[in-house]
Nucleic acid binder design. Sequence first.
DNA 1: ATACAATTAAAACAGATGTTTGAATATAAG
DNA 2: CTTATATTCAAACATCTGTTTTAATTGTAT
Lengths: 217, 217
Amino acid sequence: MNKRKSLIRTDTKHSIMDAAEYMFARNGYKGTSLRAITGRAGVNLAAVNYHFGSKKVLLEAVLLRRIQPLNLERRRRFEEIRDNARKLRKKPEAELILKAFIEPVFYFGESDPGSKDFITLIGRAIVDPDDTVRKVFHKFMRSIFELLFKMMSEALPGLSRDVIFWRLHFTIGAMAHAMRICSPDMKELAHSGTATDTSAVIEHLIRFVSKGMKARR
Amino acid sequence: MNKRKSLIRTDTKHSIMDAAEYMFARNGYKGTSLRAITGRAGVNLAAVNYHFGSKKVLLEAVLLRRIQPLNLERRRRFEEIRDNARKLRKKPEAELILKAFIEPVFYFGESDPGSKDFITLIGRAIVDPDDTVRKVFHKFMRSIFELLFKMMSEALPGLSRDVIFWRLHFTIGAMAHAMRICSPDMKELAHSGTATDTSAVIEHLIRFVSKGMKARR
DNA sequence: ATACAATTAAAACAGATGTTTGAATATAAG
DNA sequence: CTTATATTCAAACATCTGTTTTAATTGTAT
């Protein structure tokens, strides 16, 4: 049967991607060897180059698998906000836009257990010192950032382009940092007794950035 | 003479540290080889292990050289704020505390030309996927963060420990991200025509985080 | 069953990595 | 100058890296 064949094929591919996501998130791109990935996945070393072609393409696949549905959800929520605003003949609300941008990242990480690593991975990809990682990531993120920028300009027409640009980047920085702290092996950072419950963090974060975003001047 | 000897010794040591700082900032810890460092420094490969013992110790030295005076300056400003507040029998102001924490990083980078790299380096060390980097960095930062936490708790007694903790981390995340964008080879990120002037960024940043910090609840 | 393609497996590849070694050189003191 | 110490240097070390190769195995149709 055709089903059987393709199932087996995608099984190894998926194992590799899962293992890679896990390892990349914890040790970074440079810090993860193909042997560590294939070892964890329980497949042969050569399988990576057979199925993906190279380590770099594997990384792209790992990132894209999560970022694509993530940004789709963000777009959906952006349009929802725009539609509602038009109906009410109002400007879209900054806080809603930020929620639409931030919440999906964390909730995607909660739904699929495997994608807990992906929160860390994304949080790090944003700033990875390795050119490969950063360029791949920015390639996937540029368009959604520009949409975010546009929406926010509509929501806060009193602010200059520069101010919006920088505040959005502060937002992303704060978000990425929160994502990393929320990662499994970073709880070390938290003070003893500090709540690291995800949904609470999201609320704190959104409150924080929307206040900063809406500051006068 | 003793002077001559120690001058020569520290000369190679300094060259190595400068080169290492430059390379670590651009390519990360894992992404930088000792050969790249010694090549740039114009010294022999073995010099690193002779003078520092290992790549890891070199990293610690590079970080410590900048972080020590940086945190000294932060402490000085913290105490200044405390003294002034006591004189006026008022609580210390959150915005001043944030300025005391944030400004020195950027200004240190502007004074010494070589330490422009260090802004990037610090910005990345905060989140480097490599355990070595992150643990070394946190070791040096823990005490100053706790002081920051204490000061902020005095400034904003209405907020819970959790809220202050998280908001300070959002602040650090935003700051680190800003530091990375300000780095030489990351301007790619900025929209065309966006001002990347350092002092302007600092002002935007402080405005942003102090608004977020002081949000009710 | 046979032939064909897709996948897996083990081994080897060339190159880069941090570190060590032992000889050569420079510097200081006696 | 001579000796002792500190530093530099080139070379080699063992190990790890991503990738390629070649053979064996598997699955799927004819």
